[in-house]
Computed example of a mutant assay.
Amino acid sequence: MSGERDRAIDAVRAVAIAGVVLGHWLVTGLVLGPDGGLVQASPLRALPSFAPVTWLLQTLGLFFFAGGYAAARSSRPLPRRLTRLALPVAGLGALWSAALLLAAVAGVPGVTLDTVATLVVSPLWFLLPFVGLLALTGPLRRTVERAGPAAVVLPALAVVALADAGLGALPLTVVAAWLVPYTLGVALATGRLASRGTGLALLAGGVAALAILVLWLGYPASAVGVPGDGRSNLSPPSLFTVALAAAQIGVALLVRPWLNRRATPPVVAALNRAAMPVYLWHQSALIAATTAVAWLSGGAPVPGLHTAPDGLAWVGARLAWLPLFAALLAAACRWAGGGRTVPTRCTMFDGSEPRRPVEVIAVRDSDPPRHSRATRQLS
Rank of each mutant, 00 (worst) to 15 (best):
G197L: 10
R376N: 12
L322D: 03
R364Q: 09
V111Y: 04
A147Q: 13
T290A: 13
S238C: 03
G37C: 13
R261L: 10
W55I: 09
V251K: 04
G218N: 08
L124S: 03
P88G: 07
T137C: 09
T341S: 11
A332P: 00
P139V: 14
L128D: 00
L127G: 06
E359I: 05
Y219C: 02
G110A: 13
E4H: 05
R370W: 06
S42D: 14
V116S: 01
L87T: 07
V39M: 10
L193W: 01
W321C: 01
S74Y: 07
G110K: 12
L239I: 07
A90M: 11
A70N: 02
P220N: 10
P354H: 13
A16W: 01
P123G: 03
T375C: 11
L60R: 06
R84H: 15
L133N: 05
S75N: 10
S297I: 07
E145C: 05
G110M: 12
P266R: 15
V268C: 01
D367I: 06
G299P: 15
G110V: 14
L157M: 08
F126Y: 14
T290H: 04
A72T: 01
E145M: 08
F130E: 08
I17G: 03
S122I: 09
V12Y: 04
G338T: 06
L87N: 00
I212D: 00
L184E: 00
G225I: 10
P123H: 05
L170S: 05
S352T: 15
G228P: 11
G93D: 04
T198E: 11
V251G: 01
S235W: 13
R340K: 06
H306W: 03
N260Y: 01
V180E: 03
I9W: 00
D35Q: 10
L82N: 12
S284I: 14
T115F: 06
R142E: 13
G339S: 07
P48F: 13
P88N: 09
A221V: 09
P343R: 08
G107H: 13
P79H: 12
I9T: 06
P323D: 04
P303Y: 08
N272C: 12
P88E: 15
Q40W: 02
P88W: 08
L134T: 10
R84C: 14
G168L: 02
F65M: 12
P149N: 04
I287G: 01
A211H: 06
G68T: 02
T83V: 09
G225Y: 11
R13C: 14
L62K: 00
R142V: 06
T375W: 13
G228Y: 13
L324P: 00
A150V: 09
T344D: 15
L30H: 04
